[in-house]
Amino acid sequence: MVIYAFWNNKGGTGKTSLIFQSLTFYAHQHPDERILAVDVCPQANLSELLFGGLTNNGSETLLMRQGEIPRRTIGGYFEKRLPSPFTIPAFDAHDYISHPVDYNPAIPENVDLIAGDPLLELQSNAISTLSSTQLPGTNAWLAVIDWLRDLIATVGDEYDTIFIDSNPSFSIYTQIALSSADRLVLPVMADDSSRRAIQNAFSLVYGLKLPSEIYSRYAFATRLAEVDRELPKVHIIAKNRLTQYMGAASAYAAVLRSIDNDVTALLKNNPEMFSFEKTEDGVVDIRDFQTTGVVAFARGYPLFAQRPGRFDVMGKRVRVDGEYLANSVEAVQNLVDML
């Protein structure tokens, strides 16, 4: 079983759209595998897409899942763990798992989902406090960080590949998500803030270039290393939302080259943090989906299931161009081929 986490501490990089397309493409092309999507984000946008998107009642379906007892969400599972943070209580992971195709026929049959939940924001302070508890003989932080690993362990033999959508923050629930992953997919944009975001990501996850020894002592990487736990390896850096026509040859080319240069330097100095040996083997360009993406995401449709033509989106007729659609499918396929 391989677990991928899609994360960047900078918002707006298209992380959720990429994981939605990647996991559905992957599931469609590997029908004999079981895929689990885990939405560890209080915005729960991935869950809404899988349940049907804006125009196909995705939000309403998600609200129904959140209204069940127990909540059929990651927040429902965390609610179970709050009274028992350091020992694993009796629970059935299937209480928190949904089958998206039951609500959205565009989703492959072999995809399951643990939905996101805004309750995560309310739970965050309590979880952080619990992780700082001083207990003789118990590593409270590790016990809390392992909550998602505990859940996955109970159903791990049912799934071949797991995709985790994580929040742009580095809050405690994001750390829970990332510590569960084997491989990290890092979406970035063609702007200088995304270049800085790569540097920030390596500081937060891998403890690189921290401002002082004080921070290093409490760093995520340091605490996992102290208990001989491996960090996820960077598997793909997806340069996302490049213009359809100009691609990497646009005015952003200098920034894109600088991102490649930064990755090359990191790869040379810290090869153990990556799953690839050459920059070109781990970096992929993703064209902007433009109108094609607007329509597909509004409908909760993977791009491979989307068709060209005119569609009604919230009372407006929107046209999906066949060439744009083919370009978008190719872009996602290039990413999925690297998984």
Rank of each mutant, 00 (worst) to 15 (best):
S22Y: 02
L151T: 06
A331G: 12
A225D: 15
T292K: 03
V40F: 00
V295R: 01
S258Y: 10
I88Y: 00
A221V: 07
Q306R: 01
S59Q: 13
R319L: 07
S22W: 06
I97P: 09
N125G: 15
A254S: 12
V185K: 09
R81F: 14
K268Y: 00
T222D: 05
D92R: 13
S22L: 09
L62A: 12
I74V: 12
A251L: 11
G293T: 04
S179P: 03
T129V: 03
F163H: 04
A90N: 14
R65N: 09
N45F: 07
A225K: 15
Y173G: 10
V255K: 07
F276Q: 00
L231H: 09
A153H: 01
A296D: 11
D281E: 05
G247R: 00
L122M: 06
K15N: 00
R217C: 07
V294C: 05
S171H: 14
T154Y: 00
G247M: 08
M338D: 08
T73I: 11
E213Q: 15
A90T: 14
K209P: 08
S128N: 07
N269C: 03
R195A: 00
M338Y: 01
R317N: 11
F91I: 08
I69N: 13
F163I: 01
T154A: 05
L18S: 11
P89G: 13
D228T: 12
A177R: 06
N104G: 15
R65L: 15
A197I: 00
I107R: 11
A5H: 08
Y4F: 15
L122S: 02
R310K: 15
A298T: 11
G58T: 04
R299S: 10
H30M: 08
D157V: 12
L82A: 01
I127V: 03
K239S: 04
S180P: 11
F78S: 01
G67E: 12
S47D: 12
I35L: 13
M189D: 07
L82N: 07
Q199S: 03
V284Y: 10
E68S: 14
N9P: 13
I145Q: 14
I3Q: 13
I19M: 04
A201Y: 10
M189F: 00
I286L: 12
Q306S: 14
I88S: 13
G322M: 12
E33A: 08
V38A: 11
P85I: 08
E323T: 02
S250W: 04
N104L: 14
Q21I: 11
R299T: 08
F25H: 04
S166D: 11
I172K: 02
K239W: 00
E60L: 05
A251H: 03
M1E: 06
G293W: 10
I236M: 04
N104R: 14
I3T: 15
K80D: 10
Q123S: 03
A153Y: 12
T13E: 09
D102A: 15
R72Y: 09
Q134E: 10
A251W: 03
I97T: 06
V227K: 15
D285Q: 01
Y218D: 08
I162K: 01
I162Q: 06
T222V: 02
P100S: 08
D146M: 10
A115T: 05
S124G: 05
V283W: 04
A251T: 07
A225L: 10
S59C: 11
P85T: 02
R229H: 15
